[in-house]
Design a protein around this nucleic acid. Sequence first.
RNA 1: GCCCCGGUAGCCCAAUUGGCAGAGGCAACGGCCUCAAAAUCCGUACGGUGUGGGUUCGAGUCCCACCCGGGGCACCA
Length: 956
Amino acid sequence: MCPAHDTEHVDDEPPFRYTAALALDLETRWQHWWDEHATYETPNPSGPLADPEALDNGRTKLFVLDMFPYPSGEGLHVGHPLGFIGTDVYTRFKRMTGHHVLYTMGFDAFGLPAEQFAVQTGQHPRLTTERNVTTYRQQLRRLGLGHDPRRAINTSDPRYYRWTQWIFSQIFNAWFDRDADDGRGRARPIGELIAMFEAGDRPTSDGRKWSRLNATEQAAEIDIHRLAYVADAPVNWCPGLGTVVANEEVTADGRSDRGNFPVFQRTMRQWMMRITEYADRLIDDLEVLDWPDSIKTMQRNWIGRSPGSRVRFDSPAGEVEVFTTRADTFFGATFIVLAPEHPLVASLTTGPHAPAVVEYKQEVRQRKDSERTDDTRAKTGVFTGSYAVNPFTRKEIPIWIADYVLMGYGTGAITGVPCGDQRDFEFARNYGLDIVPIQQPPDEWFEQHRMEPTLDTERWPEAYVGDAPYVNSSGKKLDLNGIESVRQGVDVTNEWLEATGHGEATVTYKLRDWLFSRQRYWGEPFPIVYDDMDIAHAVPDEMLPVELPDTESFSPRTFDPDDENSDPESPLGRLSDWVEVELDLGQGLRTYRRDTNIMPQWAGSCWYELRYCDPTNDDVLVDPDVERFWMGPRTDLRPDHPGGVDLYVGGVEHAVLHLLYARFWHKVLHDLGHVSSMEPYARLFNQGYILAAAYQDERGMYVEASEVERHDDGTYTFDGRPVWREMGKMGKSLHNGVSPDEMYEQYGADTLRLHLMATGPLDASRPWETRDVVGMYRFVQRLWRNLIDEETGELSITDEPATDDTRRLLHRTIDFVRQEMDALRMNTAIAKLVELNNHVTKLTSTPLEVAEPLVLMLAPVAPHMCEELWRKLGHEHTLTRHPFPEADQAWLLDDTIEIPVQVNGKLRSRVTVAVDADHAAVEQLALADPKVAAAIDGASPKKVIVVDGRMVNVVL
RNA sequence: GCCCCGGUAGCCCAAUUGGCAGAGGCAACGGCCUCAAAAUCCGUACGGUGUGGGUUCGAGUCCCACCCGGGGCACCA
């Protein structure tokens, strides 16, 4: 049983012992006090939240952000607040060390999880969302987080999503000028593009004069440049969710990351965002971000930039364009492979081969994703019957189709170079295609394969990939023979391609445009209407928000998860009263049809940090002065600082979704002049996860972990049936959550905060053990007792000065704790505070000169208790902005120091020397030590190594 | 298969970046208190750093190979 609940004996306890009950009392009291005194409200330099006087005190601004939660129906578990507490401790520390801190919390309340919860419980998502937000608010407040409550936002609040829609309109009304900024490219207002067309400064796509295009044609011309556009595109249709989803939301095995339903590739008319235009900037600007390398790598991989060449081959069906990163290998190209879905396949297929081609395409379509991605499977394909001309060799080479070539990457067509590409090699071997050697592999390569060097590829065990001298690689005006590096071979070939018009150097990306529309209910409606010509118009800014219509039929139409041929049906489309709307868009009152899609979950989180800066501004999404103050580039720190939030803390799972989308939106807003920062998050920190034991029964189902019984033989049962234990991320899906409410009840919030911070570094995942929490509970009890008389509740300390020992430990602790908290290493800071407190415990009474700094240093982690103690120490004001203790350098140094003496690397003795003793003196002292002398045993040392203040090593 | 992290006491974690392996917490054990127990308090013990090699006067720390755990990517031409 937990101590605090052992009520039978509670009477024996001193009345003012720090117990859970006392913690509850003082914690709720202080939370109330902070609210009343607006302790954590932070002023802006201008606008509605301005208080210039409060700003003008020489403090540095600091914007710290948590990844905001979506309020699920289960409420918090103790794993959730790990990051929140980490940032809270950090911001509290920073407030005490001269910073103006912007720190608040909002809710990511739109989206699938909220909607699914509502559908499951048969209640309107607005109701369930509101209720869940209330629960979260209470639970977070109980943790004592120092948020500015005025800045809290909720993405499903019309006053918030008004601006989400506004940003969408900005993106819709923008195009990407690739030539701007010396080829870096920049978004510009669509009006500037129209002006260029009108002035004839820019040719239209089909070369006709702008004025000769009719309204529909003009609209179409503009639409192909918009950063947000509607297009027929291959999309991921998920019947089980009843909506399309983005590439980033599809798992590696072809299922939805929400719900784990099958996802099918289909061509559909959907909203897309031209994130691909930003691919280079999204990669290049990673350089100036202070982010974990792992996340940067994930983003680079996701964007997947690969420089290569496009080359056109003549074929009976016209030109076939292929993409390759190895332009140097065309002399070895002995076939062409198209993706089975390639548009030219039909016209390239000759009569005799048609049945095989049709059958193969059918086969590929039916192949399961798990099979398709199995790269151990033999390469398959069929011949189309047609030949293309290799422009390098002038030879005819067969055109095949094979499913190892993907339509979604490059041009969906490749040249088969079997001698230099393992996939092509395997394919050629399978179908008896020529393998022409074009490089002389190095001798070591043959040695590795235990064979004599040869150019007879029949005997090669695999393709050779890498640098090597070229052979058989000369033709008309292009001669690679003699060149030895791939790099050079590619460069020379690219020059030839461009000179002859056969192709050109290019870059392809794995990144696709962002599929932005969803056929669900709980999200931001598009601020778009269509006229009778079906031309899309942005709803004017002054008519925003386009409010999400209230309806009881909010459930999306979902389908059999495997019903590939079903079609999405948006819930908003059923509301004909809402869909039909009369508007004056400058041409008088007309009837328009609203777009019935909603935005994806990610829209609201793409820009929330901006709204935190200026949450109540009704004129702009964020006042430019305010944005510059909180998020402007800190060129005072380093010249290439991109601006953005100073510290962003959250889980690694958003590496390529939220973090990529948010960067994209931010860059568009920057380009259009709305924000001064070039990146949203200057520094990113990934907190670890709290893991907990989870238990599976025979069926593999997870059972409620708290009800599992452990037996002496190490086995576990649930409800009398055997279950098996594993460790996993705490949460709903593994049924292993522990609620913070239980911890408040047993120990109080300060203890929970201390425990979560003390068990390990913030970025480390670690298992939760409820029984460990008592350690920090004992610590705060001890600390409390060191300052407070448990019988009277009165302060019990002494004005007597501390001894030198105590004082030295105090200043060392101050020095260390400052350093560690600043580096987000709360675990080691706490360890040193415990150490100091343990030292104080041994004293007969606690000196005031230790008590005060101890309380101040612990305050960031255990703010409630420390405020209470601070008050009892006679201070009237909150310690929130009281200066953090400073170490006195004089007490950091000892006069003498004990250093180890090794003989041949083995520890033999210790000697005490003056800190400033010179090497000779230290050496002499070490050699004179009896234990050392015994170890040396009369031999004369070869060398004596003295490391200042560290150790002595006598080498014989 | 490839690319990142990480393996230190029974458990969670420190270790001034190459210099005495242990700061802190849990658990364990002993003691005080108690009729007894719980809680509090006081005290004690515990491993040579996943494995094998190498560099060095000296390796938890650097290098090489491997094993285990976690994460990401995976026919990307």
